[in-house]
């Protein structure tokens, strides 16, 4: 078997989710090649070559891959994917956007968000917002799957010495153009990679009050997240949403503040090692998954927490 893993990167750095995806590839077994499609992404190729367990790194360096437009990257992935038994990508928004497109070009029914490898053709994945785990077997000749990063421990970023090969770019699909982006800038760790996450919900009442959480986060080196309710209400931007349709996190410590705990939110955080809930409603469903529950007004408890840390 031979597995093609699509690297997640920003043309400068290899993103952590790639290491979890390579771990899933290892669980399948076989030679693991990594594709770095980007523009001016040589450093990413070199980083990928150092990852433990990688046989070969393919670098497609072209301006058409600069912004990971799915129309272009999927074409390349489908062309290269024909030579592999498996094609894997992280289940990030980039992977989820591109991978099904590549699978359709290969006439393959992809498998989204795998959380376990049972055998080379059989995988587990959550459905119904994580309320049910399905074991799914693929009969396609090439298995195409996106990998939920939190379900696989990352492989070591160092220790490998794979060959780096450049591959030529596919034709420009010429149906889409990058216009611009507004990326959140923060000195705090990335939500999906943080060891500690503190999230706020509707109970925060407004965006200014998230300042209370930022103060605690800075003491703990934590990332700050939010429930859908808080994002929908406009308190904070969408990139902070944790849940079924937002980000999936599994930190060592997750602190839910003023979050009731809808199943769609639990789907995004219930694999955290330790969960703390602070909520004034003692009936809130969040307490049913919390290791430590504190029934209190968050506007008293959070500032006190900050001073005691």
């Amino acid at each position: 078997m031979s597995i093609l893993v699509i690297a997640e990167h920003d043309n400068a750095e290899l993103k952590g989710a790639t290491l979890n995806t390579i771990a899933a590839a290892k669980a399948i077994g076989g030679d693991i090649d990594v594709l770095v499609a980007g523009s001016g992404c040589g450093a990413v190729g070199e980083a990928a070559a150092k990852v433990a367990g990688v046989s070969k790194v393919l670098v497609a360096d072209s301006a058409i891959y600069e912004h990971q437009l799915a129309e272009n990257v999927a074409k390349l992935v489908a062309d290269l994917g024909k030579n592999y038994s498996h094609v894997l990508a992280p289940a990030t928004t980039t992977g989820k956007n591109m991978l099904p497109r590549a699978a359709a070009l290969l006439d393959v029914q992809p498998i989204s968000d795998i959380i376990a490898v049972e055998s080379p053709d059989t995988f587990k994945r959550p459905i119904y917002a994580g309320n049910v785990i399905a074991t799914v077997q693929s009969s396609d000749a090439i298995k195409v799957a996106s990998v939920r990063a939190t379900a696989f421990d990352p492989v070591a970023a160092e220790g490998g010495s794979a060959a780096v090969e450049s591959v030529s770019a596919a034709d420009d699909a010429a149906v889409s153009k990058f216009v611009g982006e507004e990326l959140a800038e923060s000195d705090r760790p990335e939500l999906t990679a943080a060891r500690v996450v503190i999230s706020g919900g509707r109970g925060m009442q407004n965006g200014e009050n998230f300042e209370l959480l930022y103060k605690v986060a800075d003491k703990l080196g934590a990332a700050v997240g939010a429930s859908r309710a808080a994002v929908d209400a406009g308190f904070v931007p969408n990139d902070m949403q944790v849940g079924q349709t937002g980000k999936i996190v599994a930190p060592d410590l997750y602190i839910a503040v003023g979050i009731s705990g809808a199943i769609q939110h639990l789907a995004g955080m219930k694999d955290s090692k330790v969960i703390v809930a602070i909520n004034k409603d003692e009936e809130a469903p969040i307490f049913s998954v919390a290791d430590y529950g504190l029934v209190a007004d968050l506007f008293d408890a959070v500032p006190e927490l900050e001073t005691k840390l």
């Binding site: 785990i133 074991t135 396609d140 969960i275 003692e282 049913s288 504190l294 005691k308």
Partner: peptide, 26 residues
Amino acid sequence: RTKTLKVEPPAERQAGIKVADVAELV
């Protein structure tokens, strides 16, 4: 193209304890 072999509930998380105050939580 794919076959669902099995569906099962996810591992249930046990509810933990309630702490009295912030000091106990920390």
